[in-house]
């Protein structure tokens, strides 16, 4: 199963950011698929660690683009990025310590985590860039 689905309304209007959003979702799905049946703590850690690294880099890029466009809600948006990174670190530690990965639960969690940020913060950035 795919963990996350890309939706066109995720687009915010900065080509490189949209591109990386899709790459990220693809990456999450691919890494998750590669995980296969091996659900050892080590493999889970690898999977989440990779996602963490890529999302960190992605946020860094999005923040650069927001800064260079003088996006007025930058600090709010940035704060949410930091919160999301804190969250994923919590998820990482939970799963690596317990070594149990419930696909459905993780899928829900990541979807909520990602989707909520998209729907609120990225959508606001999108509408700012439309003006």
């Amino acid at each position: 199963m795919t963990l996350l689905e890309w939706r066109d309304d995720f687009c915010i209007g900065i080509a490189e950011v949209d591109h990386e959003h899709q790459v990220l979702i693809g990456l999450i799905n691919a890494v998750h698929a590669a995980l296969g049946a091996d659900r050892s703590a080590e493999r889970i850690e690898e999977f989440l660690g990779e996602i963490h690294a890529r999302i960190s880099a992605h946020f860094a890029l999005e923040e650069k683009d927001m800064r260079s466009r003088r996006y007025p809600e930058f600090s709010l948006h940035k704060a949410d990025h930091e919160r999301l990174l804190d969250d994923i670190r919590d998820i990482m530690d939970e799963y690596s310590v317990h070594g149990v990965l419930d696909d459905q639960a993780l899928s829900n969690r990541l979807a909520t985590w990602f989707g909520d940020h998209f729907k609120t913060y990225d959508a606001r950035l999108h509408s700012f860039l439309q003006v």
Partner: peptide, 11 residues
Amino acid sequence: CPTATPFRRAS
């Protein structure tokens, strides 16, 4: 660098 994180293990 945001990708210089030691939690990366898959790559």
